[in-house]
């Protein structure tokens, strides 16, 4: 796609968690087309990333479902409205579009122009948890990485991988054949990664091809962003491990990110909205779900669903100022049933 040509649509939703997904449904019933932006590699937000297997008991009419089941059901429910997902990218800037509406640009360079922007970003976007050492910044992107973007950066290197989960072990096993040497540092001799990966790692350790260090990273050494050694605190004291690449996997954290600078009125780190339409201080920009604040706000998924329904009513007026909005029920309206694809 030509990146200079913006995607024109009715509604851009920032965040593909449960509330963002249900907003697609409410907007879709009114005939509005939606695009969603999310920094994760899949829809679902916290439900899919933090607690896919944990039970949720407070969704109306669903006595129990897991986080992932809730997302799967929402994805099925919004399928008729054919939303477009733009994943692995963060909503970066928001500015007024020429001729009205909003222009939103993502970290991947995708540009949207739409009369309505809906922020359903939960607790913010998921980003890798950075190494909390003052010197880390000097090495980040040069010899310290939180993800593998280009494998060539690691070939023939002396690599240290940190972490005990699937990301850490998968990359350890993938990079082992092409590394000059490779080591794994983890705080305990137990790993939550898939048992098969752990078994393969242990084999490589026994074969002398991977060095396993039980401890926690205490410091980084090197010049001009080039890592020379990592200091590791172990039970037996501090050790100095020589290496020139560090790949650290300490999970993801959530942060408000770029939208903190969009000129939105905030209340203790959340976006202040009205309770009629969940609109922010910027006309046509709405906030729903955990990220919005109003007196009495509860951070419940069901509250976010309600907020999305009311938001869609006002969003319609921005998207279709010439048209009249008639309130209808899915039970009785042939028009809504056509949109849902259950009636020809």
């Amino acid at each position: 796609m030509d990146r200079s040509e913006p995607i024109r649509t009715d509604m851009v939703i920032v965040g593909a968690g449960p509330v963002g997904l249900f907003a697609v449904f409410e907007a879709g019933l009114l005939g509005l087309r939606c695009h969603l932006v999310d920094n994760l590699d899949k829809p679902g937000g916290q439900c899919a990333e933090l607690y896919p297997d944990k039970p949720i008991y407070d969704i109306p009419a669903i006595p129990v479902c897991t986080g992932q089941e809730l997302i799967d059901r929402l994805m099925e429910q919004i399928r008729p409205f054919e939303p477009t997902f733009h994943l692995r990218q963060m909503a970066q800037t928001l500015e007024r579009a020429e001729g009205g509406g909003w222009r939103l640009t993502t970290s991947a360079g995708t540009v949207f122009e739409a009369p309505v922007v809906v922020i359903a970003a939960g607790a913010g976007c998921f980003v890798p948890r950075r190494l909390p050492l003052p010197e880390a910044e000097r090495f980040e992107g040069r010899s310290l990485f939180y993800a593998v973007r280009r494998r060539a950066d690691f070939a023939g290197r002396r690599i240290l991988v940190a972490g005990g989960g699937d990301s850490a072990l998968d990359w350890l096993l993938t990079l082992e054949p092409e590394a000059e040497e490779i080591a794994l540092v983890h705080r305990r001799d137990q790993f939550r990664a898939a048992p098969d990966s752990v078994a393969r790692m242990r084999e490589l350790v026994n074969a002398g091809r991977v060095r396993l260090i039980i401890g926690q990273i205490a410091g980084l050494e090197g010049e001009d962003g080039e890592l020379e050694a990592v200091r590791i605190r172990t039970r037996e004291g501090e050790v100095r491990h020589a290496c020139d690449r560090l790949l650290a996997f300490y999970g993801l954290k959530m942060e408000l990110g770029p939208l903190a600078h969009w000129g939105l009125e905030l209340h203790e780190g959340l976006i202040r909205v009205d309770t009629e339409a969940f609109e922010t201080n910027l006309p046509g920009v709405f906030a729903i779900g955990d990220i919005c604040w109003y007196p009495g706000k509860l951070k419940l998924i069901l509250s976010g669903f309600h907020e999305g329904a009311l938001m869609a009513q006002k969003a319609f007026r921005y998207c279709r100022p010439e048209e009249k909005l008639v309130f209808r029920y899915t039970t009785s309206s042939t028009e809504l049933q056509k949109r849902l694809g259950v009636r020809a």
Partner: peptide
């Protein structure tokens, strides 16, 4: 629990 230990793996200064 195992769950708690697994989450502590993602903390620092443990």
């Amino acid at each position: 629990s195992d769950d708690e230990n697994a989450m502590l793996d993602e903390a620092f200064e443990v």
